[in-house]
């Protein structure tokens, strides 16, 4: 584990140095000076995005199971959670958790204070909870689009609830939902820029800080370019996963007879 962390830290430094060094001869001074800061921010954004999308996905699975459950004690809270997080702006959610809960301070929050003290953790928490609500709704769409006959057939075979979920429903629901899920990851990447309002030095935070020193608008364009690179990489990664999990006979268009 520590090895992994160390390798990753070294990779970050090497990547930042390498790319900034390579770009230096062909870039304006403004970018060259700011380049290491941009890459600091780039990796903070990437880390927040990967962690929140993975954690958010896990929570979404739990939420969607509760949402489609026949028990009202599960489905109503799950519905309310999805409704509230999709019905309010992320910026409000961030500020409720950071400034709102944070104002209770060390006395009010007790053992939770070290967590809520740091903008990074509050940002991760908010992004995770927010994306979980959207992903849960996407997965619900996937589940409800399955032909009902399949579920009846699985029941008739004597499969238990968990067997049906694991073997029949989820594998198909995820395939149906994957394109929409990919969109959500990109939207999450863009939304993550808002954590710069709670002191996190992500790519947006660095971009705004560099801008506030020079008031040169091209700083924003450099920041945008890095976001576009990230969006491109993500799109590529999502397509690779999609290709891997496609079952050829399922999607290849049947030639008309």
């Amino acid at each position: 584990m520590f090895d992994f962390v160390r390798v990753y830290l070294n990779f970050k430094i090497a990547a930042s140095d390498g790319i900034c060094g390579a770009l230096a001869p062909i870039s304006p001074d403004l970018f060259v000076n700011a380049c290491p800061r941009f890459f600091d921010g780039f990796f903070v954004t990437l880390e927040l995005l990967l962690l929140s999308s993975v954690l958010g996905f896990l929570i979404a699975v739990a939420v969607v199971l509760a949402r489609v459950s026949s028990s009202r004690f599960l489905s109503i809270p799950a519905h309310a959670y999805i409704y509230v997080f999709r019905g309010t702006p992320l910026l409000v959610q961030l500020w409720v958790l950071y400034y709102g809960l944070g104002s209770m301070g060390a006395e009010g929050l007790g053992p939770l204070w070290p967590f809520f003290k740091e903008g990074w953790w509050v940002g991760l928490l908010t992004l995770t909870l927010n994306t979980a609500a959207y992903v849960a709704e996407i997965l619900r769409g996937g589940i409800q689009n399955l032909p009902h006959g399949q579920i009846e057939a699985a029941e008739a075979c004597g499969m238990t609830w968990s067997q049906r979920m694991r073997r029949i429903i989820f594998p198909q629901a995820i395939r149906i939902a994957w394109p929409a899920y990919g969109n959500e990851v990109i939207l999450l990447m863009k939304a993550s820029a808002l954590v710069s309002t709670i002191t996190v030095m992500d790519l947006m935070g660095q971009t705004r800080t560099i801008f506030s020193r020079s008031y040169d608008l091209s700083i924003f364009l450099y920041g945008a370019a890095l976001y576009l690179v990230l969006a491109g990489l993500l799109t590529l990664g999502l397509r690779l996963v999609e290709a891997r999990m496609t079952i050829p006979s399922f999607t290849q268009p049947k030639s008309p007879r």
């Binding site: 400034y99 104002s103 060390a106 003290k117 903008g119 002191t199 800080t209």
Partner: peptide
């Protein structure tokens, strides 16, 4: 940033008042 950036944890806020809030909260 220039004078404390290396030794202290410098946090930047969008407004002066937001920084007051966090000073009050003990962040």
């Amino acid at each position: 940033e220039d004078n404390l950036g290396r030794s202290a944890d410098v946090k930047l806020y969008d407004t002066q008042t937001a920084a007051y809030s966090d000073l009050d909260a003990g962040r």
